[in-house]
Design a protein around this nucleic acid. Sequence first.
DNA 1: TCTGGGGTCCTAGGACCC
DNA 2: TCTGGGGTCCTAGGACCC
Length: 427
Amino acid sequence: MKRNDLVALVDCNNFYVSCERAFDPRLAGKAIGILSNNDGIIVALSNELKALGVKRGAAAFKLPPWFIKKHDIRLFSSNYTLYGDMSVRVMQVLSTFTPELEVYSIDEAFLSLKGFENRDLTAYCHEIRQTVQQWLGLPVSVGIARTKTLAKVANRVAKKFPGVGGVYNMVDHPRMDKVLSWVAVEDVWGVGPQYARMLRKEGIENAWQLSQAAPNWIQQKMTIVGLRTVRELCGISCIDMELDIDPKKEIISSKSFGMPVDDLHLLQEAAAAYCSRAVEKLRAEHQVASMVMVYLTTNRFKEEPQYANYQQARLPVPSAYTPDFLVLVHALLEDMYKRGFNYKKVGVMLSEITHQSKAPLDFFAPTYLDDERKTIMDCVDGINRRWGSHTMDYAAIGTLQPWQMKREFLSPHYTTRWGELPVVRAL
DNA sequence: TCTGGGGTCCTAGGACCC
DNA sequence: TCTGGGGTCCTAGGACCC
């Protein structure tokens, strides 16, 4: 990107909450919280819930029943199927507004506005905002600037000052110092808790001060990554748009259990289930992997005997055939397992990933692409796509699955299951 | 009772090579 | 007293993002 680039950051407001509201208008104006896996903590809050003093990360069970009742607080288990599907729709709408769209996260995208210099950018972004609102029922905020980091700042302003109407334009802003001084240093994109603590100790408390810091010192303390952030705050674009979706380098599937698990066979089941999920994701991207890693851990927050370990193994030939991995995962876990601990979590990670067509060849073994194993997997995936996931599964994942996560307050899969479509009734 | 899950990038340091 | 120097590759760990 060059100095004269233009970029808009579109970010959905309270995305998970807004998805729930989009399908249930009665939730408008209510204090709403979305829970983490296992219904443990609150990961997303509506503004009304924030106003009651509840913080992100608060343990759900610690909200007293009288408090919930008094303020009519609505809690939901996270429904990632719904949020993921809504996300795809948002991105589809946004892509009609620019030739260059970078999907940055489930609820955010950067839009290149290169070539739009002569338009009224603020008005154009209001149009984007209104379109998403009208077509999907989701509120978004838009920040416009010459660098991604500044677009993040502008987006923050758009969210925090309702007066600007959800869009804030920082391109050639006359009072950059004033806007940046308003942003706390830990709220700058690229500055996490560790760096924020260090910077504050050095007297740098806001984005403006950070933008004025000595480049050499910044690079020494925060690596090249920190230096880029500083330059971006100064309006020099260093972080390019990423228009191609990079193939994944690793795929992780792991979850905390809904209850403590000490039995090896149950751990094996859970690991097999996550393994199967991970390899499914691998195939969805037409990739193969040769390395698999398994980890398991007890609950580090509890005052009881602790144990954590991981081990990895390599397949002789890259594969996307689930049973190849199930066998390894089974053996690795058996090796690591120690009796007498209450385990909280296992995870499976795939790495050394390549595209199916680029996998290294083996003289003595067929490649995944040319093998009947691929035919079998395609068949399984096809069935699960047609009839719903888990229609066909591996016996290794068990049937009772007592380790499954808790999701007591799950909303319907409004957009992805026929049986759960919202119904509109004439009164 | 609870304290998520899934990613990426960068650097330092060790192993190994000539 | 001496015990090079420069390069690459790999891994672990730390930082960040949502």
